[in-house]
Each structure stands twice: as C-alpha cells, then as structure tokens.
Nucleic acid binder design. Structure first.
Ligand code: ZN
Ligand code: ZN
Ligand code: ZN
Ligand code: ZN
Lengths: 130, 130
DNA sequence: TAACAGTTTGTTATAATATAACATATGCAA
DNA sequence: TTGCATATGTTATATTATAACAAACTGTTA
C-alpha cells in the first residue's frame, strides 16, 4: 500500500480546481480562479502544477497547454499517458486501456531503443459531436 | 501520382532550415537564422510553419514546441505521427513503423470513438546516451 | 487590358505561456 | 536550536504565439 502523498496548501488548491473542472484548464485560467485565495503570481501556479505532475495527480495535454486530473490509479508509476481529444468540443478523456498501454510500454523501435515514458494524443470527434 | 506542392519563398526558406537542422528547431531560433534573408517578424515564421504542417512537410514536437522535417512519404495523408525523444541529448527521430501506425490508426476506445489523427511521443535514452 | 479573387508578404502591436532570481517562511529532524 | 529541505511570496523577464491591417503578387476571366 502506497502512502497517500500530503499536498501543500497551494498544491491542494490547484488540484481541487483541476479535479472539479469539466475540461482541461490552462495555467492562467487557474490563476484567475484562485486570486481570491491569495495566489497572485504565475510562479505559484506553475510550481504546484509541476509537483502535481511529478506525483501523477495531473497530466499536461501537450497539444493544448492545459492540465487535467488523473483518474487512473497507476499513472503515478507508469508515466504512460493517452488521451482522446474531440476536435469540435475540445472534450478530453484519459484513456485507460490496458491493452494499449501494454502494447506501447513494451514497444521498442528498430534501433532497439527502449522507452520509459510516452504520451499519446488521439484526435477525432466525440459521440456528441459526430 | 500526387503533384508536388509548390512552396512560396518564405515557406521554402523555413523548410530548408528545418530540413538541414540536426535537431528540432524552435520558431524563434528559425527567426534569428533568417534575419539576414529579410524575414523580421514571428508572423512570417509562424505562417510558413502552419502551411508546412498543413501539407505534411514538417511536424511539431508538442512536448518541445519545436519543429522537424518529415522524412516519411505518407504523413501528408495520414496525420499520424510518432516520435522517439532522448531525454538526455534531446535527439528526436520520427518513427516509421507500419505495425505501430496500423495499430494506432485502427484504434477505437470503449466509447466507440474513432480517430482521424494522433500524435505519439516516446521518451527514453538513445543508443549513445544509455 | 482591367477587374477580380486568392494567397503571400510585410509590419506593428499585443496576448498567452513559462521561467529566473531572490527573499522569506514553515515543518521537521538531528 | 541549529540545520536542512520544502514551500511560499514577489518582481521581473523570457519565450511562444496570434491579432489586425495594409500592400504586393499570382493567375483567371470578363
Ligand atoms: Zn493518469
Ligand atoms: Zn465533441
Ligand atoms: Zn512525418
Ligand atoms: Zn541521447
């Protein structure tokens, strides 16, 4: 059993906002949302984001410069992330497909290079948008 | 036979620089490299980059905000990209693995969502760095 | 030829995203 | 209580990307 990580005040504030959001949040949109809580500078947000990413509580959607909460217990370990992104409504879901992650985690290319980490972003139209 | 796309002056300048680079280039580093050629503003770079991406001549490495030339004839059609990235020396290679691209191109998640496009970035240590 | 549409270019300004650097505070263990 | 690691607050700045508008160039066709 892994000990639950204790979060600092700012880390908890930022995580709460991301977890309660319906869509990926951008750093500055988080900042604007916490100014009433006394956080005033981008650094404070980015530091919390960095830590939350490091411990696997959130992920960055690289193609959008936005952040989502992880809903997948084993991401802390694997550093393997996969997302589906709707190109119309921008809805993002973290994929949690064991077969896919096994396939990619064991992937090594022709040079024999082995990977410790990957990020996959799929684009298409979600059920509602197609 | 697909007609070769004719590039405009700025598009060709930017493509030449990216094709001759040993590593992914950032937009502003391209800009600094073409000021002797009379290109002075970021817009001119970003416009060329956008076009080159659209026609499949280059790709953006999202995790690095950098651009590489495509060495893969069928990327223009597929919009399916996969890269290996060395975490130490930053070397980036475009993967051209038919099995991988078939697997991902036919992937549909549990909701039945079908994808038109994907981007995959693998991280590890290259041969020289490990 | 002249009018036109489409695309490319040039230019200035500004928005959005992210980090540097330094001072202070807080929690905890030796 | 001293020391160390971590977290915070703050100001400034760097980096990445887009907006908005005017002018030039291209090929097409009335
Ligand atoms: Zn996750
Ligand atoms: Zn949608
Ligand atoms: Zn390619
Ligand atoms: Zn390397």
């Amino acid at each position: 059993m892994v000990e639950a990580q204790l979060l600092s005040k700012n880390q908890q504030i930022v995580l709460d906002i991301i977890e309660n959001a319906k869509a990926p949040l951008k750093a500055y949109s988080i900042l604007f949302n916490v100014q009433k809580k006394g956080i005033n500078a981008p650094q404070q947000i980015y530091r919390a984001l960095d830590k939350l990413i490091e411990i696997g509580k959130i992920h960055k959607i690289e193609s959008k410069n936005a952040f989502v909460a992880c809903k997948n217990a084993n991401c802390e370990v694997s550093k393997a992330t996969a997302f589906s992104i709707c190109e119309r409504c921008e809805k993002v879901e973290e994929l949690n497909d064991l077969k896919l992650s096994k396939y990619l985690s064991s992937y090594s290319d022709k040079t024999g290079m082995k990977y410790k980490k990957y990020n996959l972003e799929f684009f298409g139209l979600c059920k509602k948008c197609k």
